[in-house]
Design a protein around this nucleic acid. Structure first.
Lengths: 162, 162
DNA sequence: TATTGTTATACTCTATAACTATA
DNA sequence: TATAGTTATAGAGTATAACAATA
């Protein structure tokens, strides 16, 4: 029990007590269960994010898309090449700006996205298996609130791994 | 509000509704605020994890330490080289097994660890700024429970980034 | 001159395997 | 023969910058 307590530090958290560690573990656990769900998808987690972003709204340019999912535009090129090769998305020139290309999700892409979403839902359920329905809902709510705060204050993203 | 719909997928959560995205954002946000806290630390987040692991219990071997924080033993070599160069840890031969080396945290290391912990506490507070005390406590509790589940079922770690 | 998308290059990680010294 | 630690090498992933086409 050789502890140095400068002021209000937790006595000896070892590794299991603090929020950062919990976030780390939960994030890693979710990534793990989610990885299986997106494994067959070109680009993995990133491919999923792109498909989600494309599933609604107007077809964005590659740059707009890259910004939305917090990816570099050079990465977006490779990623879309891959997705397009598998016919999950298509690219077409923007009639109003011939520099830009509009990205669209295909029907195949939508079908694939739905599959992955189902799989992810199951994965989430597995992750939260120990919580009753009320606690699970509470956790979702709280996480969403923190996430929104983080996003709003742009404390947040820039690194995009799932 | 944002509700999961397992069957009617075409609803369109965009990107802001699902648990995975929230976890992703929160994790990224935490990593971001935490990165500043551990920036000066040799090895960054990993250096922190190692110091925490060393701050209690018997001095472990490098291998045991590597397993505890889910790092490869080859990575541990570099990391400890770095930490030792900054005099935050020391290595000494294990008298009972001359192949192994015991790793110890130094007083400098402990002082540094306390600084980082304070900084991290502040970072956490910033992250949870929008939650009142009760909600924050609830979130910590729920996350810890999920983390423990994940760890126990070893759904979890293997990737060690903060 | 600035912007979209692409390509090429370099750099950082990580994983793998090989090597030593002990057991 | 197996294990703890180190070192070297190769591969993946990422970022940076340069480039062509268009605005």
């Amino acid at each position: 029990m050789s502890e140095k307590k400068p002021s209000g530090e937790s006595a000896d958290p070892g590794l299991g007590a603090d929020l950062g560690w919990a976030i780390r573990l939960v994030s890693a656990a979710f990534r793990r269960v989610a990885t299986d769900s997106v494994a067959e998808l070109p680009g993995g987690a990133r491919g999923y994010l792109v498909l989600v972003a494309l599933s609604s709204g107007e077809p964005p340019s590659q740059l707009a898309l890259a910004r939305e999912v917090s990816l570099d535009r050079t990465v977006m090129t490779y990623l879309l090449d891959d997705l397009e090769a598998h016919e999950l998305v298509t690219r077409r020139p923007d009639p109003r700006d011939r520099r830009a290309r509009q990205v669209l999700i295909t029907d195949t892409g939508r079908a694939r996205l739905d599959q992955v979403r189902h799989s992810l839902t199951a994965a989430e359920a597995r992750l939260l298996a120990d919580l009753d329905e009320q606690d699970a809902a509470q956790l979702r709510t709280l996480l969403s609130r923190v996430a929104q705060t983080a996003q709003r204050e742009s404390i947040a993203p820039d690194e995009a791994d799932c």
